[in-house]
């Protein structure tokens, strides 16, 4: 059933291939600006690759979380069919965004790699593993926020803001290795940082020193997911559809 929904939402989103172009454009522009503004980085890492590798997952985060607000209401007409469950909406949404982001990443990697700005991944399993952690956490948070946004209008309005607040805690624009040890320790509570660090290690290899904490990342994600599932169930009981 979920698969059917994916194909269906997929049809709806044919123009959605554009999502791939957007992060690429952003990464390209920011990368160019940074290259001019800052002295060449002697770490051997291209700024463009660094920005692209951070911005694409961030776009995924923003889209998935942002769209989880009121997702039950916006898709409410589909609940007329008893086969369709509220969780399908969240999973389908996140899956589509994840596929889009993955394609954008690969596409950006090929294009930038061809131009010499993007390295071939040093450790593909670390890259994929980090990405999986990142996706899993985003899915958990979306599952948590979707029912919250139905329960309180304030939370619904705050969701876009939280995404921006999340940027410093997402490891998008910095390496954990740059941080003082005590802050770095605190950052380990953010699964986004663990995921991102692992991805960057997979991409750049030994040029970077990754810091990640898998038990914490997975633990936090699982807790969010479980609480989210319970809330989804409760909200579904009182959901009123126009």
């Amino acid at each position: 059933m979920v698969r059917e929904l994916i194909t269906r939402f997929g049809r709806e989103n044919i123009g959605f291939l554009w999502i791939m172009a957007e992060p690429l454009l952003f990464a390209g522009l920011v990368g160019i600006v940074w290259t001019f503004l800052r002295a060449p980085d002697d770490s051997g890492i291209s700024v463009i690759a660094f920005v692209a590798s951070g911005y694409i997952p961030l776009t995924f985060l923003r889209q998935s979380i942002g769209r989880s607000a009121k997702i039950f209401q916006t898709n409410g007409s589909l609940l007329y069919h008893r086969q369709v469950k509220v969780l399908d909406f969240i999973f389908v949404r996140v899956t589509i965004e994840a596929i889009g982001a993955t394609m954008a990443y690969i596409f950006a990697g090929i294009v930038l790699g061809f131009l010499g700005f993007f390295p071939f991944p040093a450790d593909i399993s670390a890259l994929v593993g980090g990405w999986a952690i990142y996706i899993f956490f985003v899915l958990s948070v979306a599952t948590l926020l979707a029912p919250f946004s139905e329960m309180s209008e304030a939370i619904e309005k705050l969701i876009p803001i939280t995404v921006y607040i999340a940027i410093p805690f997402s490891g998008v624009f910095n390496f954990a290795a740059w941080l003082p040890p005590n802050i770095r320790e605190a950052m380990m509570w953010s699964p986004l940082v663990s995921g991102m660090e692992l991805m960057r290690y997979g991409l750049f290899g030994d040029l970077v020193t990754p810091y990640y904490d898998l038990p914490k990342a997975l633990g936090i994600s699982i807790v969010c997911l479980l609480v989210g599932l319970v809330l989804c169930r409760r909200v579904r009981r009182t959901l009123a559809l126009a």
Partner: peptide, 11 residues
């Protein structure tokens, strides 16, 4: 599903 003015379709 309830056949009415709304619902059941993706507009």
């Amino acid at each position: 599903w309830p056949l009415g003015f709304t619902g059941g379709f993706q507009g």
